[in-house]
Nucleic acid binder design. Structure first.
Lengths: 344, 344
DNA sequence: GGATGTAATGCAATCGGTTGCATGTCAAGC
DNA sequence: GCTTGACATGCAACCGATTGCATTACATCC
C-alpha cells in the first residue's frame, strides 16, 4: 500500500488495466479480453497464462469500459413509490435477490409518490441500466411508453397494454373479504380509499363495489390520502359517524391507523366494529391481529425481475401480463356485526 | 418510432450522442461537452444554442462514457444488512434523498446479514461507484479496510478507527430508560439482546449494565437471535419465568414481538410488566404504544451520505466519528412495578 | 506441390464522452 | 501599427475495454 510522507494511506489504489496484463503476459489486449469473455477461442495454454498474470496483478475487467463498448452494464433499475411503506421492502428484497443470482446490480430509486422525481430518477438511470422495473409507477402512460421503447421494462401494479407487467390481483381476496363480512352480518360498510392514480386502488375499489352490490351491501367511500398510518387514523372519526359497521382499507398501513383511531374513540374491534386490511405486510403485529387480503407481494419483485431478465435476453419482447393471486387471511379484527350500533 | 415488419415496436430507440448534437448545432463535440460541464467557458449564445438542440433531440450525456473518461460515475453504493427490517427503510430513504440532491444515483445492496453476500455485492459495486456507505456491516475489519483504501467509505453503526463513521449513540437513551424504570420501582429487569457481532447491541448491552449497576438494579440477559418479531415473541416465556418486572429490548421489532408474546401469556402491559424498545421505528403503531429509545435513524443515512460526499470531494479523508444522540420517548408500555408479581 | 481449411492471435476501429493544448479573433495598450 | 492578452472554440489524444477483419502457421486433401 502506498503511503504519503506522513504515512497516511492514500487513495486510489489504481486498478490494473488490460494493457498491463497484456504486456506482462506477452500477448495483445485483444487476447486478454478474450481470455475473460470467450476463453474457448484461445488455446488453453494462453488462457491459463493470462489468467495467472491477471490474478497476480489483481486485475478485474473494468465494468464501465466494458459497458461503453458493449452496451451491457449488468445493472438494472428498480423504482418504487415509497421505500418506507412496508409493502415495498419485501418486494425490494426479493427483486434484489433474483438480480443477484443473475449477476446484476440494482439501482434503487425512491420517487416518494412524486411523478417529477420519478422521471428525474429514470433519466439518471436509463443510461446505466439494461432494464427497469417500475413498482407502482405514478408516471403517465406516455412517459412510461417512451422509456419502455428504450429499455426492457417491467411494471408492477400498473396495467398498460403492450408493456410487460406483473399485477397483484387483489380482487379475489377483496371479494372474499366482502363475503366474509356479509356472513358476519354486516350490511353497511366503508372502503377507505388510497391514491386515485393507483391501479391497485382502482382495482380494489371496483372489487369492493361489485361484490358488495352482488350481496346487497351498501358501501361508502372515505379517502385516506396519502395512504399512511396517520391518514388511516384520521379516517376513524368520519367512518364512525357514517354509521357503518365495518371497513375495508386500501392497505394494511391505513387499516392499522384506522385501528388506532377507533381505539382512541373507544370503539371496540372486533366487537363493535370490523376492520380488514390489504397486502398482509404487517403479519400479526397489529392489535388486534388484522384480518387482511394476502397478496404475497414479495413474489411480485421476484417475478418482475425474472420477466425483465428474459426480456433482456430475448431482445424482442412478447408482452406478458402476469397475475399474482390473493386470498383472505382471517385474524382477529373482524367479528359479527353488532346487533345495533351504539350511536356515537 | 421504428417498427419491424409486423408493426411491433422495436428497441432500442437509440439515444442521441454528443456527435449528433454537435453536428446539428454546428460546433465541435468538445463544445457540446463543455456546454454541459463548464458552460462558463463558452459564450452564452453558444451554450443556449447547444442546449436548445440537445433538448430537441432529447440528448442526455451518457454517464457510462463520462465515467470512463473522468473516473467519476456519479454513483454511490449503499449496503444494508436487511432491507426488510423497519430500521433501514427510513435510513435508505434519507440517504437516497441526499444523494439525489447531489445528482448521484444509488446502488442498493442487501446482505441479508451474510458477510459472504456482503462481500460479493461490494465486489460488484466497487468498480462502478465513487463511494460507499455500509450500514451495520457484518464484514470483518480487515476487509472493510481494504475497500476503504480503494474508495471513500462511510460506516454506519460500526466503529473502526481510521474510517469515517456515523454512530447512533443509544447509550444516553438507554440510560434514561433504565432511570425511568428505576423511578417506576423496577428492581429486576431483562435485556433482550441482539446479534453478538452488532456494534449497536454491544453498546446497548453495556449501557444497560452500567446504568443498572449504578442504580442497584439486577439485570439478566435473554437472547433474541436473529432480532425479529418472532424471536421477540418467543423470548416472552423465559422472561416471565425469570421473575423480572420489566424488559428492555435490542430493538423495536423484538419489543413488539415480546409485547405479543406477553399478551399471549395473559401478562398485562404495562400493569404487570413493562417493556421498552429501541430505535423508535414503529411510532405509535404497537399496542400498547411502545416506550422506546428514539435514535432518529433516518438522520444516520443523511449524515452518512453527507460525509461521503465531502470525503469524495476533498480527496484525502480526515477521519470523522460522528455521533447521533438519542433520548427516551415514554409512551404506554411502561408503568409502575407491580407490588408483587403474580407467580405462574 | 499447390489449394483449401482451420485454429490462434493481432491490428485497429469503436463505444461516447473529457480535456490539454493550439488556434483564431478581437480589443486594449503603447 | 504592432504587441499582448483574454476569450471562445477546435483538434486530437485518451479513458479501458470489445470485436470485425486480417494475418500467420499448420495440417489436410487432391
Amino acid at each position: 500500500m502506498k503511503c504519503d510522507p506522513d504515512g497516511r494511506e492514500q487513495r486510489p489504489e489504481v486498478a490494473p488495466t488490460i494493457s498491463q496484463v497484456a504486456k506482462l503476459s506477452g500477448v495483445s489486449r485483444a487476447t486478454v479480453s478474450r481470455a475473460f469473455t470467450r476463453p474457448g477461442m484461445l488455446s488453453e495454454e494462453t488462457v491459463r497464462r493470462v489468467k495467472a498474470v491477471a490474478d497476480k496483478l489483481g486485475y478485474v475487467p473494468n465494468q464501465v469500459a466494458r459497458a461503453l463498448s458493449t452496451g451491457r452494464h449488468g445493472n438494472v433499475g428498480l423504482i418504487v413509490s415509497d421505500v418506507a411503506n412496508p409493502f415495498f421492502p419485501p418486494l425490494i428484497r426479493a427483486a434484489q435477490l433474483h438480480a443477484d443470482k443473475a449477476g446484476l446490480c440494482v439501482f434503487l430509486g425512491n420517487s416518494d409518490e412524486d411523478p417529477a422525481r420519478e422521471e428525474l430518477l429514470l433519466g439518471r438511470f436509463i443510461g446505466q441500466v439494461e432494464g427497469l422495473v417500475l413498482a407502482s409507477s405514478r408516471l403517465d402512460e406516455a412517459q412510461i411508453r417512451t422509456y419502455a421503447a428504450r429499455r426492457p421494462l417491467v411494471l408492477i401494479n400498473r396495467d398498460i397494454e403492450g408493456i410487460t407487467r406483473v399485477l397483484i390481483d387483489t380482487a379475489p381476496g377483496v371479494a372474499a373479504a366482502i363475503a366474509h363480512l356479509a356472513e358476519l352480518g354486516h350490511r353497511h360498510i366503508a372502503y377507505v380509499s388510497g391514491p386515485t392514480t393507483s391501479w391497485s386502488n382502482q382495482q380494489r375499489r371496483n372489487a369492493v363495489r361489485k361484490e358488495a352490490a352482488k350481496r346487497g351491501i351498501k358501501v361508502i367511500a372515505i379517502p385516506a390520502r396519502p395512504p399512511s398510518y396517520d391518514t388511516g387514523r384520521l379516517a376513524a372519526a368520519p367512518i364512525v359517524a357514517s354509521g357503518v359497521t365495518a371497513a375495508i382499507a386500501f392497505d394494511d398501513l391505513v387499516a392499522q391507523g384506522l385501528l388506532a383511531g377507533l381505539a382512541a374513540l373507544d370503539v371496540d374491534v372486533p366487537r363493535s366494529f370490523s376492520v380488514v386490511g390489504c397486502d398482509d405486510v404487517l403479519g400479526e403485529t397489529t392489535y388486534p391481529p388484522l384480518t387482511t387480503v394476502s397478496a404475497r407481494c414479495a413474489d411480485a419483485g421476484d417475478v418482475a425481475v425474472g420477466l425483465l431478465l428474459s426480456q433482456m435476453n430475448d431482445g424482442a419482447s412478447g408482452e406478458i401480463r402476469h397475475k399474482l393471486n390473493s386470498h383472505l387471511v382471517v385474524r382477529a379484527s373482524t367479528g359479527p356485526a353488532p346487533a345495533k350500533r351504539k350511536s356515537r
